[in-house]
Design a protein around this nucleic acid. Sequence first.
RNA 1: GCUCCCUUCGUCUAGUGGCCUAGGACACUGGCCUCUCACGCCGGUAACAGGGGUUCGAGUCCCCUAGGGAGCGCCA
Length: 500
Amino acid sequence: MGQIRSELCIQAASALEYAGFSLGHRPHNPMTVKTRFAPSPTGYLHVGGARTALFSWLHARRHGGKFVLRIEDTDRERSTDESVNAILEGMTWLGLEYDEGPIYQTHRFERYNTVIGELMAKGLAYRCDCSRERLDGIREEQMARKAKPRYDGHCRGREVGSDAPHVIRFRNPDEGGVVVDDRVRGKVAYDNAELDDLIIRRTDGSPTYNLTVVVDDLDMGITDVIRGDDHLNNTPRQINILRALGAEPPRYAHVPMILGDDGSRLSKRHGAVSVMQYREQGILPEALLNYLVRLGWSYGDQEIFSLDELTQLFDIKDVNKAASSFNTDKLLWLNQHYIKEDDPKRIARLLSPLLGDLDIDPTQGPDLVEVVKAQQERAKTLVEMAEISAFVYKDFDEFEPKAAKKHLRPVAAEALQQVREALAIVSDWSPAALHDTVERVAELMDVKMGKVAQPLRVAVVGRAASPGIDVTLYLVGREACLRRIDRALEYIAARAGDQV
RNA sequence: GCUCCCUUCGUCUAGUGGCCUAGGACACUGGCCUCUCACGCCGGUAACAGGGGUUCGAGUCCCCUAGGGAGCGCCA
């Protein structure tokens, strides 16, 4: 145990600089805003956490302050390196850069123990050796008489030795109350009589959450604590610990949580909850960020925000109090918007690996940037763009049944035959010339353009939907076009044969 | 059970006592554009949880009820 601890401390060179700060006063200029995002590494970075991080980041940027990333890994049972990496990866992808950190709480155990020692010395904390059985017993009894389950203070006046196994509890004030002045909730009052003596150090010597948060926020000079509202009820306890340490509490802002589309708490069964899953699904980070910021926050009727704009406009006070439901449709709409507006070169760069997943090498064929320009208004995600663009680079396996049934009929054979001949000899393989070619065939046959373009499209694309027929032909290229038209003609012939 | 929090269209929201016969966006839907799909444009359906007050006047203030959520861990 001691060995592990010293090992951690050696790794913690950067974190140790905080250990020197004394309590009771802020080490930083109180006017300088400093926020933090403090996830526990017990899973992936989910959208709720990402939104909290975004709010904290924006608040810091808006006020020219600092943003800190702190990893709350004091629960060694559940914390994993894998989760830490997932969180860091998610933050990087979203572009939420932190000015300090990541700081690991497991590197700061010496510091927490020092603080616990101070509280013990002042009589504000005490040892407790109550057995789990006893605790369970009083808990059961309290529940039975419909009271709030809480520690009864059994060890408050007892002298519990330091040799036998024990925990350390914070001595919560009996009298008075605590008012949390929250920037989104307003003033919330609690009676100290409702609070019990919480454990601040476990039997194994490790500190607990409510203690480490307080110590870290204090040591790091955090001025604004922005976190999920599941922490609102912990806040009075934390303020009491802060008071016991003779410190002023930071400003709090408890933001509501995000629910699934059905209004229940967001969980895996709602589909994607991890931000990296959104990347895999072809969502752009700016789209996710834009979506997330509008969940619980607004600026008049504006829907589209760049990060720069948000840095100017975001105010934590404007965040709503009520929880909101995640709506994938709106995220997709935003994503389509950003795909449409973004630089085709950037989209092409992001799209390339997704084509690779479909066994396509986009360097073997037309410039991917041209393909992106043709598809930009037609895809809600990058994954979808890859799927609807595959036909440019490789022959499709089979015609989409509905499209073939409607357009690859015997009556279409002549149009296809005609257009094939025209395409075989067109000298300038450019969208403009190809457009003229298709149009001329329609005129010659005295039919509407659709009568030619649709069978042609299904022949070349395999589906009834694609970019303009001119651009479609242009991107596919003459050789592949003629080959696929022949294949469509065979298909029609075979079908006609079946029907006889 | 106890404590705390929340409640405007299906969803995200505007609204801070009269500008609200409640606005915008997504979704849905009618139409236009059109070689398809998409984009774009024009239009439509759809909400102040319920009940009491206060007020000349309430979505906006107060109270109650209902519904939802969180916390009550040697989890964070």
